[in-house]
Design a binder for these strands. Structure first.
Lengths: 156, 156
DNA sequence: AAAGATTGATGTGTCAATCTTA
DNA sequence: TAAGATTGACACATCAATCTTT
């Protein structure tokens, strides 16, 4: 492969730094929460959303909107979680929609796991980035997302 | 859930911005390379490493070291790629090790996909971050990785 | 036709167990 | 025992196809 097919040194270093960080960070967080609380990142995200709603009850498509997940991914995930007793599916008056209800077991799991998860995010992500870099880092992330959002809406 | 279990607004915004960026970016890149060249991100990473070696031939554990993947993940991935003709496994004089060889088809795939992939990384990641933020962004990533590296070595 | 949801197939990633050879 | 590698089981993610109701 000729060299000009690739990124410059500075570009390359930034891209690699981001990829490595990404891999280490999510590896660490997922391992931590899985080992200590038996929850995957996907479980965690669903439980957080449900626990933040007043009633502990949301429609599946509300969860899809909140998480930005595809509907099939949501369906599979909720089936697995229901099988494990973390959530319960309930029929509603409108047969098109299903209600997803946080079970006592699900609530207990998220209450147990949340404080530790917050600590991990602080210790391994927010603190290392540091106060001085925090806003600029966020702005960089937002700039990337903005380009991709534009791109997505173009495709539709 | 009481509020003090969670992050502050500023922390929360940064963490969410990072998560959203992450999801959009890899979703976009993977879709792009998959659709245009039939390669997953995992395929791509293996092919890049092999194509960068002089001989187009590496031992599996060298690939594991280069990518930082677990050996079982590497084994599964290489089996799938071998089944698709992108790489070939060859026995060596030392029966403990296996050689992974880039096939002509594998080389053709990475040569075809690389330029476009570089463009996508530039357009959707490096350019939006921008020259002024690039070094600081990289330093932030490195700072996060440093904490996690320390943490990992502590565990061993 | 469109929206909400499910399913099956396939590819991906992790863990634990196993095998072989040094 | 330890390193390199494989395997099987399971969870996760995506795509295409399907179903029901509006």
């Amino acid at each position: 492969m000729s060299d000009d097919m690739w990124l410059s040194d500075r570009e390359q270093r930034t891209w690699r730094a981001f990829l490595d960080m990404q891999r280490l960070l999510f590896g660490h967080i997922n391992r931590q929460v899985q080992r200590e609380f038996g929850l995957s990142g996907a479980d965690f995200e669903i439980l957080v959303n449900l626990s933040e709603s007043e009633t502990g009850r949301m429609r599946a498509f509300e969860l899809s909107r909140a998480t930005q997940w595809e509907k099939s991914r949501m369906s599979h995930q909720l089936s697995r979680m229901a099988a494990r007793g973390l959530v319960r599916k309930e029929a509603t008056t409108d047969p098109r929609y299903s209600d997803i209800v946080l079970t006592e077991q699900g609530r207990a799991a998220i209450v147990a796991a949340a404080p530790r998860s917050v600590d991990v995010v602080r210790e391994t992500f927010l603190d290392p980035i540091g106060d001085a870099r925090l806003d600029l880092f966020r702005e960089a992330c937002d700039a990337v997302s903005a380009v991709l959002d534009e791109n997505e809406t173009d495709c539709r």
